[in-house]
Amino acid sequence: MINMIIDGKNVTAPKDTMLLEAIRGAGISVPTLCAHESVSRSGACRLCVVEIKKGNRTRIVTSCLYGVEEGLIVNTKSDRVKNVRRLVMELLLARCPESDLLQKMAKEMGIEAQPRFTPDTDKGTCILCRSCVRVCEEVVGVSAIGLFARGSRKTVGTPFMEQSDACIGCGACVYVCPTNHIVMTSTGEKRKIWGRNFKMQACSKCGKFFAPVDQLKFISKKTGTSMEDLAVCTECR
């Protein structure tokens, strides 16, 4: 076990855990937007920053990516930390003024929108946390979506911003999106996501439309299970 002092409290954490888990394990809350449990971490949102002290040196680190270290002194509420979090929230509120999640978080943190920033109207509620892109690559394994361009023009989407052949319509990206930015509409036999229509499979037992045919084909190919076996919904299995 590793011993640390977090916000003045002695805290122990298993070796190889990240600071974020150690801090939360000690009952201290840390806001995050991009550290989804299903995917690897990128350190993109910067909300989880904390101040650490090693010897005489203090610095700001990303707690979701920083491994625990013996003797580390951690401050999760220093002025520098609060200042970074405030700025990140102000910037995100200006980018995605319509996001309910951001509004709620800001309220909890006591942060208001910065009136000097003109709110964006073209970004929807996408905060570019990359959870969708990572789940599509790491969990689903199709990499149908990606992060294109760079800087302030960065966007999430399908290649060439056209319908993607790689997408299987599974909706995992929708599931991990913290701000409900990705739109998926399901109307019985049809599902639409990333601009493409998917035919839904009806359960061979109860008749309910339960998954896109393309998703089942992908699973069939990957696992060798026959399409007939896959054509049964989870409830009827």
Binding site: V133, E137, V142, S143, A144, I145, G146, L147, F148, A149, R150, T158, P159, F160, S164, A166
Partner: peptide, 25 residues
């Protein structure tokens, strides 16, 4: 050309999304 990027994706076994990421970065 888009066709060329798609060919690259298939031949090199790199998802089209990753090729497009690099091309736009």
């Amino acid at each position: 050309p888009k066709e060329a990027m798609n060919t690259v994706s298939t031949m090199m076994g790199i998802p089209a999304s990753r090729v497009y990421e690099v091309a736009t970065f």
